[in-house]
Structures are given as C-alpha cells and as structure tokens.
C-alpha cells in the first residue's frame, strides 16, 4: 500500500516537473520520443560485457535532465526502487562466469563482473532516460506523440483515461483499506475472503463510475472518438534535436570514445 502511494506521489512530482517551460519541454514530444527510442536501441545494441563504451551515452539522460530542470534525486530513488529484480538476475553472472576477462594492474576482473556492471549500467541508462523523457514531456503529451506515431487510437484513449482515473481509484482503494484497518485493528491485512469482497466492492464502484463517465461523454456528444485540441508541429529545432543526438549515438556506437579520450589523455601526459 505504501508502495503505491509513494508511486502516486512520484507520479505527482513527475507531473509538476512536466508542467515547467524549459526549451526541452517545448520540443515536439515526437522528437523526444523518437530520440529516446534511438537511445534505447543504441544502449541495448552493445555487447553483454561492454561497460566503458556505454558510458558516453549517459550524456543523453544527463543533458536532457539538466536542460529540463529535472532534479536527479527522485529519478535515482525511482531507479533504486525498481532495481531488485535486475539485481536478482544479474548477480548470478559474477557467480557463474568467473573466467578472467580484464586485468587492471594486479586486479583480475571476471567476465561475470563485467556483464554484471554492464546490466546495471544499461538498467540505469534505459530507465533513467524513460523517466527523464516523461518528466520533460508529460504523460499526456507522450501519449499524444504515441498516437501520432501510429499507436492504435483506442490504446491512446485508454492511456489517457487510465491516467486520469488512477488518482480517483487509488484514493478510493485507500479509503477502503483505512476503513478496514480501523475496524479490524488486529489484522495486519485482510484475509482472502475479505479481500475478495473489498476488491469486489471497489470493482462495483469502478463499474458504476464507468457508467456515469460514459453518460457524461454521451451528454456532450461523444461518438466513439475522444477528440483533443492542438496539433503537434515539427519545427527545425525538433529535427536538429533528434538528428544531433542520433549522430552522437551513432558515433558512440562506432567509436570507443572513452578509450580514445583516455589514450589522448595518457598520451598528452607522457
């Protein structure tokens, strides 16, 4: 319960961030969505043991977040919350794959640890980018972009309505749980039968609400399509944003930038 409530608080903070007006917020949501897609594809296209070549890609979420005034702490906190399963799977790699793959001075690093680090890094990059994307775009605009990029209309409408009523229904569930806790102070959580009734009640209310919403839609001329105002318009700056970043991703994929940089630095030092 606390988990979902904190998740809702997180959703609220994401919304507050999305309401800001930085140049990144003003970019066309399609440009941001496509660029993020290209970013994700680039990240996962690296080999399973590559760690260092992935590092330059961190520039994308970092720069996007910085330009969009997204504070780092909530994003990192969200990543930490989502990490247990990834850790659970990744931790087997160092246990099982213990052949040396890399030597740093006297320290030998096994392939397992490399792939472990690689998985964690990918996890941070991909999910960090997704979180930053929504924080600088907003959920609604992201959905609008999905629709314009060809997602089925029904799915886009579904996303919008789900997001709208998430808060209403979670409040309702919280009230139910509070009422249960007040009248059954001994039970830490409801048993199966009680939970079935509670969920059933919640479901009945949900269905009644669906009917009222449908009536409200009909009363205002709903004919099966949820229409929204405002057309998206791609500007030169959107194209430059997408083009520029994609070029950077391609460069980072083709050239091992850190090694190049390190070589230059060490060479200059000599």
């Amino acid at each position: 319960m606390a988990g979902l409530e904190s998740a809702l608080a997180h959703l609220g903070s994401i919304e507050a961030l999305a309401a800001r007006a930085t140049p990144v917020h003003r970019l066309d949501p399609r440009a941001k969505l496509l660029t993020t897609g290209a970013f994700l594809a680039t990240v996962v296209s690296f080999g399973p043991r590559q760690v260092i070549p992935l590092l330059p890609l961190a520039l994308y979420p970092v720069a996007l977040g910085a330009l969009g005034d997204v504070p780092a702490r909530p994003v990192l906190a969200r990543l930490a919350l989502a990490s247990p399963f990834v850790l659970l799977v990744a931790i087997w790699n160092p246990l099982l794959d213990r052949a040396p793959a890399l030597a740093i001075g006297g320290l030998v690093v096994s392939g397992g640890w490399l792939s472990f680090a690689s998985i964690l890094l990918r996890f941070c990059l991909t999910l960090g980018a997704a979180l930053v994307l929504v924080a600088v775009t907003g959920f609604d605009a992201t959905c609008a972009a999905l629709g314009r990029l060809g997602a089925p209309r029904i799915l886009v409408e579904q996303l919008l309505l789900l997001h709208r009523y998430l808060f209403v229904l979670v409040d309702e569930a919280a009230r139910l749980l509070r009422a249960h806790a007040l009248r059954a102070p001994e039970a830490r959580r409801p048993g199966l039968r009680v939970a079935g009734s509670m969920l059933g009640q919640l479901l009945l209310r949900t269905l009644a609400r669906a009917q009222r919403i449908h009536r409200a839609m009909l009363c205002r001329g709903f004919d099966g399509v949820l229409r929204r105002r405002g057309a998206l318009r791609l500007r030169a700056v959107d194209l430059a944003f997408t083009g520029g970043w994609c070029a950077f991703f391609a460069l980072a994929r083709a050239v091992d930038l850190p090694r190049l940089l390190g070589g230059l630095a060490l060479g200059a030092g000599r």
């Binding site: 997001h163 709208r164 009523y165 609400r209 919403i213 409200a216 949820l226």
Partner: peptide, 13 residues
Amino acid sequence: LVFQDADDQLFMP
C-alpha cells in the same frame, strides 16, 4: 447536464 460528481464529468487530461 452538469453531473453531481465532477470527477465523472472531467474525464479528459
């Protein structure tokens, strides 16, 4: 028609 529960009526984002 203005509904009793505004949450039912305000269904857009």
